[in-house]
Amino acid sequence: MNLKTEANGNLMVIFVREERLDAHNSEELKTEMNRLFEEGTKYILIDLKEVRFIDSSGLGVLVSGFKNASTRQGSLKLCGLQTQVKSMFELTRLHRVFDIFQTVDEALESM
């Protein structure tokens, strides 16, 4: 899976550079998030702007990261959702759970 992680102060930004986030590759994103949490990261932003398709496994990995961040008194936020990806968050009501921003810059401004 093509992921790029960048530090921005105490926030880690993970760029998911894949067209699909699904049952085939989403565990790798979970592994990367868990690595960051174990290193002491509390705040993660995931940029999904290159992701055109997400399934229940991809959503589940994001929920797992959200819960993990919450138990560490941190946060996991999202940005760059394409229309079809956003529709999956709405279908599963997860748009009410996550803080979702248009861009990385917009997310940074809110912090």
Partner: peptide
């Protein structure tokens, strides 16, 4: 949101 599960959305979708 307080009781979210990682899994169990496939059949619902």
């Amino acid at each position: 949101p307080a009781k979210l599960d990682d899994k169990g959305r496939g059949i619902f979708i």
